[in-house]
Write a protein that binds this DNA or RNA. Structure first.
Lengths: 139, 139
DNA sequence: GTCGTTGCAAACGGTTTGCACCGTC
DNA sequence: GACGGTGCAAACCGTTTGCAACGAC
């Protein structure tokens, strides 16, 4: 069952994890790569991808692959949902208790055994709401 | 606001729509391309993509881009949720009323104005449950 | 006849991978 | 020193796009 590979705590792995944990946004691999490069100018994008995959499989971070075509990464392991702005793609967090509990055992899933659910909201962030209002009043 | 382009009902567009409507699975563009080729051997994958995008923008079909890295397409426009098998990637439908209603206006979304929600379940389809059982009993 | 659509093939963009060198344990 | 990890670059793969010919209206 469990993998028996001993992973090493390299400078790259440590800084990638620290950087992701240090932000509240949900960066793409490329965005994180650019952040990490401030401390590790010679790091490669491949290393960022490899570490994000490894850290995900170890349960240290989360990979969000339902928020668009590019994967995003989340250093916050507390259970929570996400909301994405349909205009600027900004992704925000939603504490789990702001959403009514869904009883997974009660979901009739046509032969499926329900294991997990992914609940993603979309909407307009505060900033884009303002933008839309000012555009409307102009015209 | 509205686009004013007159779209033509080409043989390709009609067959792509009919084929998608005729299946209850949620094929990827490539899978649909292979189905459509039985009737249109010379159709191109690009045409399939272009029509799926156009049909989506016209509200004729739905594009599911949260079920994995590849987009899937759904000809069933009745509101419903999806459940994906974590093992074989099969995607099933879930009538909306099997899931407790979520009051979107009640969701406290940190400055966001909630417009929509995407609720995707994952689990094990009946077939993969059986497979797992037989594997467990063997060992 | 107009102009939206097609087939083809090349381009694109995010992600993965093969490889020789590097550095953690 | 063994072997997991890295930087680099090329490969990969789903999707998009430019273009000249085609065909629905």
């Amino acid at each position: 069952m469990g993998t028996c590979v001993k992973h090493r705590l390299t400078r790259q792995r440590r800084i990638i994890l620290e950087t992701l944990r240090g932000v509240t946004c949900h960066p793409t691999a490329d965005e994180l790569y650019n952040m990490v490069r401030e401390q590790l100018p010679r790091v490669s994008l491949g290393t960022v991808y490899r570490n994000l995959e490894l850290l995900t499989s170890e349960g240290e971070v989360r990979t969000l692959d339902s928020l668009g075509s590019r994967k995003r990464y989340d250093g916050n392991m507390h259970p929570h949902y996400h909301i994405k702005c349909v205009e600027c793609e900004r992704v925000g967090d939603l504490a789990k208790d702001v959403v009514p509990m869904i009883d997974m055992t009660a979901v009739q899933a046509g032969g499926f055994k329900v294991l997990n659910l992914q609940l993603d909201f979309s909407g307009l962030c505060a900033e884009c709401q303002k933008k839309r209002e000012s555009v409307t009043s102009e015209s």
